[in-house]
Design a protein around this nucleic acid. Sequence first.
RNA 1: UGUCCCGUAGUGUAAUUGGUUAACACGUCUGACUCUGGAUCAGAAGAGUCUAGGUUCGAGUCCUAGCGGGACAGCCA
Length: 566
Amino acid sequence: MSIEQTNNETKKQSNFIREIIDEDLKSGKHNGVHTRFPPEPNGYLHIGHAKSICLNFGLAKDYDGLCNLRFDDTNPTKEEQEYVDSIKEDVKWLGFDWAEREYYASDYFDQLYEYAIRLIKKGKAYVDSLNADQIREFRGTPTEAGKESPFRSRSVEENFSLFEQMKNGTFKEGEHVLRAKIDMTSPNLNLRDPVMYRILHKSHHRTGNKWCIYPMYDWAHGQSDSIEKITYSLCTLEFENHRPLYDWFIKELEIYPPQQIEFARLNLNYTIMSKRKLLSLVEGNYVDGWDDPRMPTISGLRRRGYTPESIRNFSERVGIAKRENTIDVSLLEFSIREDLNKQAKRVMAVINPLKVVITNYSDEQAEELEAINNPEDHSMGSRKISFSKEVFIERDDFREIPPPKFHRLSPGKEVRLRYAYIIKCDEVIKDESSGEILELHCTYFADTKSGSGPSSKKAKGTIHWVSAKDHFEAEVRLYDRLFSVENPESEANKDFTELLNPDSLKILNNCKLETSLRNSLPGEKFQFERIGYFCVDTKYSESLSPVFNRTVTLRDSWTKIDQGGN
RNA sequence: UGUCCCGUAGUGUAAUUGGUUAACACGUCUGACUCUGGAUCAGAAGAGUCUAGGUUCGAGUCCUAGCGGGACAGCCA
C-alpha cells in the first residue's frame, strides 16, 4: 500500500521509514512505535523543524504509538527558557500533543553521570588533560589517522577520581574532558575518542548550578533515547556518521537500543534555514523579531497568516527521503491558498486607491448591496456593503493606455464593479502640473445591477471597489520573499545579509477597506477579493485599528500576461 | 588522494520489493465555466530513471567500475 487517505489531510505517501517500521512490526522486532522530537532550545522553530515534528508525531499517530517532546538542553551557554516556551507553543499550535511526556536531556544528567562511570570502570572512557588545540591536533584529519593522547592510559582509579573532581568543580573550564576510548585510527572521525563531557562553569536554565560538567550531544542523545525507550530515533542526514558512535555507546552500556534513522532536512528556496543566520537577522534588526512574517519560523508563518493544517499538508507533500532537496516556495504557497480558499471570508479592500465619481448617480442616493462571504461555502452567508456616488478602485485596475487583453477600466471602456453596476469611464481628471491621475469620472448603467437578472450589457472584467462614503482606512503590509536569490545559503563568499530582498516588506497606509473589517480580531483571516489572503497582525493591530498582513497573493494569470506581453 | 550517504520530468516524492506503455503533487501550457484574470472542471507538454558494462526471459530496482553531489577534522547540536 503506498497511498492512504485521511479525511482533510493530504494523502500519506509511502517512504523508506514507514517501510522499516512495517517490516519491524511484521517481524515482531517491535510491537509499537515510539518517536521523539528533540529540539535544542537555542532558537525558534522553523519550517524545517515542522517537517520533523510532522514526521515524528505523524508516525506515532498513524501507528498508534507515542511521540515525546524532548529538549536537548546539554549546552547551557546557548539555551534559554524563552526558547523552551516558544517551542512548546509552536508544536502545540501545529496540532500535536505530547501529553505528559515533556522531557529534558537535563533530566538525565544523573543517569548519564552514572553511565559514564560505568564506562570508566570498563576501561572504555578516560579523562584527557590535553587542551582543545592539542585534541584537535591529535585527532588527525579525514585522510590521516589520529594519535593517542598521552593521558589515554590512565588507570581506572585515576580516571574515576579525576572525573569525580571534574564534577565537583575542582577544575577550570578546558582543563580536562572525559573521552570515550575507541579508536584514534578510525576512518570515522566520530570514533576517534569523542569527548563525552566538558567542564562548563555555567548556570543551566533548569539545573541551575548543580552541574559544571555537561554531556556532549553524542553522549546525551542516544542514551536519552534509550531511557525513553524510543524505537526510532529520527534525525537529519548530517548525523549519519554519528550512528556508529550512537550504537557503540548503547552496546557498551548494554542498554535498550533505539534505532537511529536519518532523513534529508528541508530546504526552501529564497530563504535560509540556519538557526545561526536566522538569529543574526533578528539580532541585526534586519527583521522584526523571530516572528517577523517574512521569517521561515513557525511563529513567523503563524503571524503571516499560515494555518497549522496548511503546514501539515505541506510537510506531507514534501515527502521523506535521503537525498538533498530544495522545495519551491510555490508549494508552500499552494498549501496555504488551498486551505484559506475554503475558509477565508471574502471582503473588498482597495490597497492602492483611485477615486471614481459616478456622475449620473445622485448625491443622496445610497444602496446596500448583497455580497457573498464565500462562494466555496455558502453556509458562510452574505453581508451588506454600501454603494455610493463616489467609490475607490485599485489604481492598477485603470490604464490610460490599456495593453492588449486588459479587461479592466480605461478611457471609454466599461467594467463591472463587483456586486454593483457596470460603469464606463468618461473622463480622466489629472493634476495639471504633475500629470498624476487624480480621479475618474464615470457613468453607471442602472439596469446592470448584480443579481437583477439579465441586463443589456456584459462587461469583460469585474473589479473590486470600496465606497468613498462608507469605509475605513487601515495599514496593510505586503510581504515578499526575504531573499532575492534562490539559494542564499549557497553564496558562501557573500555576507548573506547582502542578499536580502529590499522589497520584502511594503507598508501601505490609508488603504480603503470595507467597514465590516474595522472590528476584526488579531489573527483573523480574509481574502481581499482579487488581491490575496490577509490576516490581522497580532503585534501592531489595536482595537478598531487593525493592521493587515498579506499572507499570500491570489494566483494571478494577468500579471503573467502583462509581464510576458511586453 | 579516507569513511559514510545520495543521483528518477523544472521542483519534490512514488513505483505492487526483479514484472506490462515510470505514477502523484506543485509548477508550466491549453480549453470550458464564472459577476474574483480567484476557485472549479477537462486536457496537454515534460523523464526512459547520472554514465558504461554485467547478471536475468525481464533491471529505476541486483553486481562492478566510473562520474557528479553531500556529510565528517567543535570541549556545538
